[in-house]
Design a protein around this nucleic acid. Structure first.
Ligand SMILES: [Mn+2]
Ligand SMILES: [Mn+2]
Ligand SMILES: [Zn+2]
Ligand SMILES: [Zn+2]
Lengths: 138, 138
DNA sequence: GTTAAAATGCAATGCCATTGCAGAGCATGC
DNA sequence: GCATGCTCTGCAATGGCATTGCATTTTAAC
C-alpha cells in the first residue's frame, strides 16, 4: 500500500518523503479537488508551507493539476496517469457546486474545439461550469 | 457625447457621477478588458476604492461583467446591451494572451453545450482560452 | 560516517479584494 | 435659499492567499 504510493511518486520523479506520501494518500481518497486550506485543516500538525510546496512539486511533475474555480483559493486534483512534467492532459471540464462549494473533475465531459478569430492561437483551454452537483441536487 | 454616456448610465439605473462618467468613457475606448489596477494607473489622481466601487456598481447593474483570467486580478469589460441587473448574457469565450497579458471578450465564439453527469445542473459556464492573440501572433 | 543536495519550518512580504466610517456632494421639499 | 436625507467618495484598516528567503533538518550518495 505505502509501497504503491512510493512507486507512484518515484515514477513521476518525485522523491518520496514522509509528508509527500501522506499528501498523496490523502489526495487519492478525495472525491473532489482540494485546496491548500483543506490540506492544512486535515494535517493540522503539518506546516502550511511544506504542504504548499508538496502541491507545487506534484504539479510540476505532472502528478496533480491546479484548478481555479473562482472561489479565491486554488484547488488541486490528481492528474490522469499520462500527465508528465512537460505536458498536462487535463483538457476536461471542471465543475464547481455553488451549494457545497466542492470542485470536481469531469474527465468524461471533454472540451469541444473553440472557433477563434483569425490569427488567434490556442495554448490552453479552461472550462468551468458552476451549478449544483449530483449530491446536492439529489 | 457626454450626454450619451449620461444616458447609458441612467438607462441601467446608475446615477451619473463625474467619476462614473469618466470610467465609462474609459471602458468604451478599451479594446481589452481592464483591471482595477489599469484604472488606477490611468486615473492616477482618483481614489482606488472609488474606482473599485464604480466597477462593482456597474457590474451589479449589468453594465460590465467580470472576468477571472487567472492573472491574479479580476478584469472587467462592457456587457452587451441586453444585460440587466438580474441577468448577465455574457455566455461567450474569453481569451487571455500570454504574450501581452491582455484579455479579450470573443462574443462571436459561443460556448457549446456541455454534457454533464446525471443530476448535475448548470447555472453558469466560464470558458477561458489562453494563447496568443491576433496582434501578438501577427 | 562524511558530505552535498534536497526538503522542511518559520518568518516575512506582497498583492488583491473588501469593509467601516466620517465627511463631501447632491437632490428634494419647504 | 436653506434644511434634510440619501448617495457617493476618500482614507484607513483588515483579511485571505500566494510566494519567497533563510536557517535547520533530513535524505541520499559516496
Ligand atoms: Mn481536473
Ligand atoms: Mn466578456
Ligand atoms: Zn454540491
Ligand atoms: Zn497578445
Amino acid at each position: 500500500m505505502l509501497q504503491d504510493l512510493d512507486k507512484t511518486l518515484q515514477q513521476k520523479g518525485v522523491r518520496p518523503t514522509a509528508m509527500r506520501l501522506l499528501v498523496l494518500d490523502y489526495l487519492l481518497k478525495q472525491p473532489a479537488a482540494v485546496s491548500l486550506s483543506d490540506l492544512e485543516a486535515y494535517f493540522h500538525r503539518a506546516d502550511r508551507i511544506t504542504l504548499y510546496r508538496s502541491l507545487k512539486t506534484f504539479e510540476g511533475k505532472g502528478l496533480v493539476h491546479s484548478i481555479d474555480d473562482g472561489s479565491g483559493a486554488v484547488k488541486y486534483a490528481l492528474c490522469p496517469d499520462d500527465c508528465t512534467t512537460l505536458e498536462h492532459h487535463d483538457l476536461h471540464v471542471h465543475f464547481f457546486c455553488s451549494q457545497c462549494r466542492e470542485t470536481f473533475c469531469l474527465p468524461k465531459s471533454r472540451i469541444p474545439d473553440i472557433a477563434l478569430p483569425e490569427k488567434f492561437k490556442t495554448e490552453e483551454v479552461n472550462l468551468l461550469v458552476k451549478g449544483t452537483c449530483g449530491t446536492c441536487s439529489g
